[in-house]
């Protein structure tokens, strides 16, 4: 019995590895098929075009790890772009605008978290309310698209950083990568982060173990709200405008990226790195479809749907195997 130590099956890494394999395969397929696909700049572009999605996926990873879901992220992104555009137009300095945006996102997240924890509203419904609220506030601010002319925003948006090999990236990429780093640190090296996993693994056990499950549950929605707002800022760098109909359906992309990245929707298993690779897979699919002139954009959605299905099936297999032990 003492010798019963089971050989370490890295089954928890399996989905992430699978995601990475899928990324390599899709990227490889693109490289074989299109000249100039396998360049460093294409990879860099994946990050540049999806920096905001990376940040959203990070926030969503926290929420999904606890077994919850956040439908509000797309709407909060739109709200962030609107607040940014409107306050800058009103003459606020860039730093104050940024603070206001991040603050709004966090407060919205806090509200939803409290609804879920204190009122025991299902995450689905609470964040649906958040989605309606954020999207509605956008329209209240303005129905028109507002362009952003602030020099600081413009500078951040347009300036590029030269990397070796004539690859350029934007500041948004750096910000997104920093968020990923911080998130990985929090999830793996802090008590809060480990409690996130514990709550997702078994909330009742976590409570009996004396963990502050309430704080964790509220906390992840605050983080997701913050990340959505930050993603919204990156999105406004990318678009240089605020618009109520920005980022419609982006929450689905974020959820898809997280699931394709190997995080279990039932909670407790997953890594932010997986979500980042998930975003890259979605980005690569999009890039391939844009390279292939004849393939139309709707194939993106279909392919994402199929990928989602494949990963859900893979997760079922893994969960089944663990239960059999």
């Amino acid at each position: 019995m003492t010798a019963l130590a089971v050989p370490r099956v890295p089954s928890r890494f399996l989905p992430v590895i699978a995601t990475f394999v899928v990324f390599v395969l899709t990227f490889g397929a693109g490289s074989v098929r299109y000249e100039g696909f396998a360049s460093g700049q294409i990879v860099a572009n994946l990050f540049i075009d999806n920096a905001f999605l990376v940040v959203l996926a990070v926030g969503m990873t926290f929420v999904i790890l606890t077994g919850g879901i956040d439908l509000s992220v797309g709407a909060v992104v739109a709200l962030a772009t609107m607040i940014a555009a409107a306050t800058l137009r009103a003459g606020w300095p860039a730093w104050l605008t940024i603070l206001a945006v991040l603050g709004t996102g966090s407060v919205l997240g806090l509200g939803m978290g409290l609804m879920i924890h204190k009122l025991r509203v299902q995450p689905f419904i609470a964040t649906l309310a958040g989605m309606f609220l954020a999207r509605g506030l956008c329209f209240v601010i303005s129905e028109e698209s507002l362009s952003i002319k602030d020099p600081v925003f413009r500078a951040v948006a347009t300036e590029t950083i030269e990397l070796p090999g004539e690859v350029t990236i934007t500041y948004s990429v750096l910000i997104a990568l920093a968020v990923v780093g911080i998130a990985a640190y929090v999830l793996h090296l802090t008590r809060f982060g480990r409690s996130v996993y514990a709550v997702g693994g078994s909330e009742s056990s976590a409570t009996l173990m004396g963990l502050a499950t309430g704080r964790v549950k509220v906390g992840v929605y605050v983080i997701s709200g913050f990340c959505s707002a930050l993603g919204g800022l990156l999105f406004s760098f990318y678009m240089l405008s605020g618009y109520s109909l920005h980022a419609v359906g982006l929450e689905l992309d974020a959820i898809a990226a997280v699931v394709v990245g190997g995080t279990l929707l039932s909670g407790g298993v997953g890594y932010v790195v997986g979500s980042v690779v998930g975003v890259l897979v979605l980005g690569t699919v999009q890039t391939i479809i844009s390279f292939e002139g004849t393939l139309s954009s709707w194939w993106t959605k279909i392919v994402i749907g199929v990928l989602l299905l494949a990963f859900i099936a893979l997760q079922r297999l893994i969960v089944h195997r663990q239960r059999d032990l």
Binding site: A198, G200, G201, A206, L208
Partner: peptide
């Protein structure tokens, strides 16, 4: 057993 199966033994 009220533990979290998704975490390590040490955790």
């Amino acid at each position: 057993v009220n533990l979290c199966p998704n975490l390590s033994v040490a955790e």
